[in-house]
Write a protein that binds this DNA or RNA. Structure first.
Length: 590
RNA sequence: GGUCCCGUAGUUCAACGGAUAGAAUAGAAGUUUCCUAAACUUUAGAUCCCAGUUCGAUUCUGGGCGGGACUACCA
């Protein structure tokens, strides 16, 4: 890697000049800002302090030494206000190009023997997916792919919340209001169908509460006494007893939801190696709690409930078993965490969960640590920000959600409109067109959700449609399609370009390509696909600018033409390899 | 109340403590006999406020002001 090489050479010179053995943290090497001449920049201030010398003096001596001793790497330097800008020899880049321009694995790392699980998506089975689920899905899948590109073996998992009071609400409402209707009989997608009854439950519940309050009940009492809520609670008890009629309905309605989810998952290209169902895991963790009581990590209150005191860690007391001995959310998560490590022999377990659960995940990890579980440190919460509307948080109960299927449909529709207006792919068959609309529309959506830092909440305004121009998926897809078109027209010949002199625009692209591997590593370390999105956008920008001012197919000389073809080829390859890590397909033509 | 997060162009997002705070959109003005104009070029526009640390602060510290999340014997 070039930056690494420069660091080595710089270290060698520092030792020679000042007998100073520099460590990784002693000085920074950045890529040079575009407004200055140079490729990499050594920041001299911290060195100046360490060596008690003037930065400019060090810069001149260091620059001179680098140039004299390593002329095969450096072709020049300049010094501006404490920044030493180094120019790298063209041959360094042309050699890199020659070596890698058709390596589809360029930038990726070999297997490192470590295994990571990424859990994401984790829907409830009482309502359809919304925009927030999509962010979660795209993030999880992308993180898994990025880790894979960095040498990890990955296991993608999903935990389905298929039991609990929320499911019972949909079931009760269906019994009361459906008259036996089904997704098949109504033609409504299964997850939406069940979600509709969840909404109907809440409407009916609200009405009952209002009526009780009108009769003079307090709000609290009314909320507890509302008959429909009681029915749901009774149903949950029946479910836990395994009462056959309830189980039957539960299975039937869950199937409807899964059918609906599968349609959506297929469209967005989501897949899991393992799906856990909460109905199977909700009893897990109780043994571990017993163990914890013996170890003195947990304690029992007089009523029989079991707690952990986390006040010393700045948190609260947390319940882990109810007084009736049944487990709560955190209990089963303790069990599931264990199961994951046992079942898959993983080194690390990443949870892609919204930041509203920061507290819960902190507690989970802390409990595992206190229990002395060996995998406690392998638990990592990828906490991402919520997708919000301009009016605030999305709430499914209040109907203020952006439905996943709706937004996907809309994106594909807009892709179709744009494509037809431009009229560039008239020879496509209907099937090819349909695939293209999907590629562009879903590509735009994925890029939109992945291009921002996962940790930050993002605001989505449904009134403004997601862009297809600028910092977007289609922009990168378009760059790729244009390159493919050139490569179809002008084949690459076996002419060496190692001796070619580079123009600025060409070098800028090659330098950026050189950084691809580094970028993938940073993205994996910080679990952040947006780093790749930004990288790819910049690469496409560099290329488009180059494309507009240089002729590739009709370059002045054959050598130059081959150089530019190889650069184009490599750009298209990296664009498509990077977009694959974001889960976005690249069209050959658009 | 407690814990945590966030305030950057009109808007949506960038910036390991580093050079003149970048992009994209929306605004203004241009570019098509030639490889796809979903592109390119030019232009205007921002760090919530006050201190402190530092050669250097959007970034770190303290104090304001403003917004949000969490704080269930729900999952």
């Amino acid at each position: 890697m070039l930056s690494q090489l420069i660091r080595e050479k710089t270290n060698a010179c520092l030792e020679k000049l000042y007998s100073f053995k520099a460590a990784e943290t002693d000085f920074q090497i950045n890529t040079t800002k575009p407004e200055f001449v140079g490729d990499y920049t050594v920041v001299l201030f911290s060195l100046a302090k360490k060596l008690s010398r003037n930065p400019d003096q060090i810069g001149n001596e260091l620059g001179g030494a680098l140039l004299n001793n390593f002329s095969e790497v450096f072709k020049g330097y300049n010094l501006i206000k404490g920044f030493l800008n180094l120019e790298v020899q063209d041959s360094f880049f042309t050699l890199m190009l020659e070596k890698n321009f058709q390596d589809v694995c360029f930038g990726k790392s070999p297997m490192n023997g470590k295994k990571v699980m990424v859990e994401y998506s984790s829907p409830n089975t009482n309502k359809p997916l919304h925009l927030g689920h999509l962010r979660n899905n795209f993030l999880g899948r992308s993180i898994a792919e990025i880790l894979k590109a960095n040498g990890y073996e990955t296991v993608k998992t999903c935990i389905v919340n298929d039991r609990g009071i929320h499911i019972c609400k949909s079931m009760i409402a269906w019994q009361l209001f459906a008259n036996g209707a089904t997704p098949q009989s109504t033609g409504i997608k299964g997850d939406h169908f069940v979600g509709d009854y969840y909404v109907k439950f809440n409407d009916a519940y609200k009405k009952e509460v209002e009526e009780l309050v009108a009769k003079g009940k307090s709000k609290d009492a009314a909320e507890k006494e509302a008959p429909i809520m009681k029915a749901a609670q009774d149903m949950l008890l029946d479910w836990e007893k395994g009462e056959s009629k309830v189980m039957e309905l539960w299975k039937k309605m869950n199937e409807w939801v899964y059918d609906g989810f599968n349609v959506t998952y297929t469209r967005i290209g989501s897949d899991f190696a393992k799906t856990y169902y909460e109905s199977n895991t909700y009893l897990l963790g109780r043994d571990t709690v017993e163990l914890g009581i013996q170890k003195g990590v947990f304690y029992k209150k007089e009523d029989g409930s079991v707690w952990i005191d986390l006040t010393a860690d700045g948190l609260d007391e947390k319940l882990v078993l109810r007084k009736d001995g049944t487990s709560v959310y955190i209990t089963q998560d303790i069990g599931l965490a264990q199961l994951k490590f046992q079942e898959f022999g993983i080194d690390k377990s990443i949870y892609v969960i919204g930041d509203e659960q920061n507290y819960h995940m902190k507690v989970l990890q802390l409990i595992c640590k206190k229990l002395g579980l060996p995998y406690a440190d392998g638990i990592q919460h990828l906490s991402y920000g919520m997708v919000e509307l301009p009016t605030g948080k999305m709430k499914s109960r209040e109907g203020t959600v952006v439905d996943a299927d709706d937004i996907i449909d809309e994106m594909i529709h807009i892709a179709e409109q744009h494509t037809q207006e431009l009229g560039k792919v008239k020879e496509f068959t209907n099937e090819e067109l349909k695939e293209l609309y999907d590629t562009i529309g879903i590509g735009a959506l994925k890029f939109f959700l992945l291009r921002v830092d996962p940790k930050r909440k993002m605001i989505f305004d449904p009134k403004e449609s997601i862009d297809f121009h600028g910092f977007t998926g289609p922009f990168i897809q378009y760059t790729h399609a244009r390159i493919k078109s050139i490569l179809r027209k002008y084949p690459i010949a076996s002419v060496s370009v190692e001796k070619c002199a580079l123009e600025n625009d060409e070098k800028k692209i090659l330098l950026h390509l050189e950084n691809y591997n580094q970028t993938l590593a940073v993205a994996a370390d910080s679990l952040d696909p947006s780093i790749i999105a930004n990288y790819l956008f910049q690469l496409a920008q560099f290329f488009n600018s180059f494309y507009a001012s240089h002729s590739i197919g009709n370059a002045e000389t054959e050598e130059k033409k081959q150089l530019r073809l190889k650069i184009s080829k490599m750009v298209s390859m990296v664009l498509s390899s990077g977009m694959e890590l974001l889960g976005i397909k690249m069209p050959e033509k658009m």
